[in-house]
Computed example of a mutant assay.
Amino acid sequence: MHFTDYDTRVAAYAVIVDDGRILLSWFNGNHRTDPGWTLPGGGVDYGEQLPAAVVREVKEETGYDVEVGEPLTTNVFVVPFEAGRRPYQSTRVIFEARIVGGVLGTLEVGGTTDFAEWLPLEDAAATSESTADIVGLGIEAWKALTTR
């Protein structure tokens, strides 16, 4: 399929681990996805650099300022044609990041994030219905980086 025949969303996310805990945000759901835990991050604005998107999204969703590290992994998923909608591709880039300031508290108003919390890393790595697949992808990539 030619790229003009489907919609594309580029998103950037952060894996932030500290003292055996990972920072996650609570996605409040939409018409295609149930509510659940996800990595802080989201859609990259037009003309925005990926690391800048991570800084902005983490601030909005968690209240923290971050320094963005290297990309850990990428992931692509597609949603095929549905009546009334074009096919859709989501390209997600996951970065390592560390907190450099701020205070825990969601700043986003009227958005898709209700709150953020630190969760034990091992609990977050366990697959559950209330955890988005991107959390496991991010943790796996982060562990691969830290064991090099």
Rank of each mutant, 00 (worst) to 15 (best):
M1I: 12
F3H: 07
T4Q: 08
D7I: 09
A14K: 00
D19M: 08
L23E: 02
L24R: 02
S25N: 08
W26Q: 03
F27A: 08
F27E: 08
N28I: 05
N28K: 07
H31Y: 13
R32L: 03
T38V: 12
L39P: 10
L39Q: 07
A52Y: 02
A53T: 10
V58G: 06
E61C: 02
E61K: 10
E67W: 08
G69F: 01
E70K: 08
L72H: 01
L72C: 02
V76S: 08
F77C: 11
V79M: 13
P80A: 14
E82L: 14
A83Y: 13
G84L: 05
R85D: 14
R86D: 10
R86A: 14
Y88P: 00
Y88M: 05
S90T: 15
I94H: 01
I94W: 00
R98Q: 04
G101R: 14
G101L: 03
V103T: 10
V103Y: 09
L104G: 13
L107K: 12
G110E: 15
G111Q: 03
T112D: 06
T113E: 11
T113V: 13
D114V: 13
F115T: 09
E117Y: 01
W118A: 07
W118H: 11
P120T: 08
A124K: 11
A126W: 08
A126D: 06
T127C: 04
T127I: 14
E129H: 11
A132T: 09
A132I: 08
L137H: 01
A141T: 02
A141R: 00
L145Q: 06
L145H: 01
T146M: 11
T147H: 14
R148K: 14
